[in-house]
Simulated scan of single mutants.
Amino acid sequence: MADWADWSEDEYVQYLQDERRRFAWVMQRYGGLKAIQAEAAAVQHYPFEASDAPYRGLVFHDEAWHWAMLKIYGERYWIQHPELVEPQAEYRALD
């Protein structure tokens, strides 16, 4: 993964928005949340971090799919739901 300190502010904000969108999509599709609830959950999970925050962007070390699955199904979701280990094609199509 990239060194977030080297990213411009615009690059960071764009990546943040993209991950929020993906997280919200999973929360709607698999978590049953309404759009507004899913968007709020995404903002909560991916808060904006100031450029001088010591671990800015650390949440990006795993993709939104993984974080949303943890939120919906809990730790070790991949054991109870092995079909959800890899993101579905619809998720990949969001890009």
Rank of each mutant, 00 (worst) to 15 (best):
91 Y>T: 01
50 A>I: 01
21 R>L: 03
8 S>D: 11
48 F>G: 04
21 R>W: 03
5 A>N: 15
74 G>W: 11
78 W>Q: 10
40 A>V: 07
88 Q>T: 14
22 R>N: 07
7 W>P: 07
57 G>A: 08
90 E>V: 09
74 G>A: 13
3 D>T: 07
54 P>K: 15
89 A>T: 12
30 Y>A: 05
13 V>D: 02
66 H>M: 09
57 G>I: 04
93 A>H: 08
76 R>F: 11
93 A>Q: 11
69 M>I: 08
84 L>D: 09
70 L>S: 05
46 Y>V: 00
5 A>G: 13
30 Y>F: 14
88 Q>R: 13
31 G>Q: 03
35 A>I: 10
75 E>N: 10
59 V>I: 09
7 W>M: 15
23 F>H: 09
71 K>V: 10
3 D>W: 02
34 K>C: 08
52 D>K: 01
51 S>D: 10
35 A>W: 09
38 A>Y: 00
34 K>M: 14
56 R>H: 09
56 R>W: 08
7 W>I: 01
91 Y>S: 04
45 H>G: 04
3 D>L: 02
36 I>L: 14
59 V>Y: 04
22 R>S: 05
41 A>G: 05
10 D>Y: 06
50 A>D: 10
67 W>E: 01
40 A>P: 00
45 H>L: 08
87 P>A: 08
40 A>R: 12
61 H>A: 04
51 S>A: 12
16 L>R: 07
34 K>I: 04
39 E>T: 11
11 E>G: 13
59 V>H: 02
60 F>D: 00
43 V>K: 08
32 G>P: 10
93 A>D: 08
63 E>P: 02
26 V>C: 13
68 A>Q: 00
73 Y>M: 14
82 P>G: 10
52 D>H: 10
32 G>W: 09
84 L>I: 03
66 H>D: 00
29 R>T: 15
65 W>H: 07
74 G>K: 14
35 A>S: 13
47 P>V: 09
68 A>L: 07
54 P>G: 15
36 I>Y: 14
91 Y>H: 03
39 E>W: 11
50 A>N: 06
42 A>R: 01
19 E>T: 05
46 Y>H: 03
60 F>V: 00
83 E>S: 09
1 M>A: 15
70 L>F: 10
5 A>Q: 13
68 A>C: 06
10 D>M: 07
33 L>R: 15
37 Q>A: 15
14 Q>P: 00
62 D>M: 08
76 R>A: 14
74 G>H: 11
1 M>V: 14
21 R>A: 10
49 E>N: 00
29 R>N: 12
6 D>W: 09
22 R>I: 02
87 P>F: 07
46 Y>L: 02
18 D>I: 06
20 R>C: 06
10 D>R: 08
35 A>P: 12
56 R>I: 05
65 W>S: 01
88 Q>A: 13
63 E>I: 05
77 Y>N: 14
